[in-house]
Design a protein around this nucleic acid. Sequence first.
DNA 1: CATTTCAGTGAACACTCGTACACCCACCAG
DNA 2: CTGGTGGGTGTACGAGTGTTCACTGAAATG
Lengths: 209, 209
Amino acid sequence: MTEPAASRAEQKERTRRAILDAALELCDDTPLAALSLRQVAKQVGIVPTGFYRHFASIEDLGLALVQESLVSLRAVLRDVRQGGEPEYRAIIDRSVGVLVDHVRGRRGHFAFIARERTAGPEPVREAIADGLALFEAELAADLARLPGTSPWSAADLRILSNLIVSAMVATAERLLSVEPDSPAETQIAHEARTQLRMLMVGATRWRST
Amino acid sequence: MTEPAASRAEQKERTRRAILDAALELCDDTPLAALSLRQVAKQVGIVPTGFYRHFASIEDLGLALVQESLVSLRAVLRDVRQGGEPEYRAIIDRSVGVLVDHVRGRRGHFAFIARERTAGPEPVREAIADGLALFEAELAADLARLPGTSPWSAADLRILSNLIVSAMVATAERLLSVEPDSPAETQIAHEARTQLRMLMVGATRWRST
DNA sequence: CATTTCAGTGAACACTCGTACACCCACCAG
DNA sequence: CTGGTGGGTGTACGAGTGTTCACTGAAATG
């Protein structure tokens, strides 16, 4: 069916991808825990038992989806970083823009994280929490490099990062609930920028005790 | 089994409560969508078909649980309000204390909201979103009554409220992930107070454009 | 007292579920 | 060319699912 020979390993990888994609699609309006191996298999076009050649269980599949989705998350930070403006306003505008773009482009991944972060099986929740904690730590490190953060203690920087990450998660969730490219999306982006600015006004006036 | 006569209506209400409680308990580590009518019935001690005398479906049960849980949510705002201190610091300390107490006392309800807010069936998600929006609006009204908010536009007050609610939801989620009365819980409460203070420093310096 | 109402019962239905097992046969290494 | 590896198949199983229907018997009604 596929043009060239398709070596064994290639074909296996292809099927694995199909399973991941199918699961993400089926998960779109249902939590992972309510997903059945047979549904996934049917969607992929393989027989139920074939599933086991790739994953030991649905939960295993979930962990693989987490890893994939966390890559999309990290890409946000990466893209934010590759703009070197030292100006708060510019950084904020850029960051929100990047977030909107990534949510648009990897809707499934962000929706998966948002859902399974609270509703997933324990190992899945843990993996997502770890990913977000890493994100938070890196954000704190970035903030420490910014001008004007010298009076901040390391602990306070972490607490601020936690707050910013929470706000970003909330923004991503709101973005997921509206149509891409809709006026509502623009509105959410605008409000997110305002919120970050409010936060930064507070941050620049803050003095750690 | 129960001491007095137990009028028909009373007994029905009792069973209804048992169903709600059983569902909340079974939901503790699994989303509503992965809950089966038969599991609930077994836990309650009635036959599966008996379930239909009280709810038309699991989703219906979910909506009832949302209503109940939102009462617990509203109680937070009510208890915060019944302290008249006009001082930011005192208001913040009090608010976080109230939140911690309520999450401790109604763990199941808060966990249910946190989980189904993103993972529930569409009508359930919608009901929770409406409840949180109401909470946000009332918070904005409260903030408008506080001294020093005169330079704030109504829109900016709403945006600030949204940010505070997001932070509070995130705090509640963190509280749910640790033991009640543990050092970790104290730590989270401390960080939440700091975050609100950071926010308020920003808020008092803000000028709406 | 006769009648109606209705929460809870119990059997039966037509599914879907995860998983075990034996089986193919195209690929790749020897 | 040959033998083994391993994706993918097909069948079968026991367990669990939502929902139907006719039912019982005690409380409520009049």
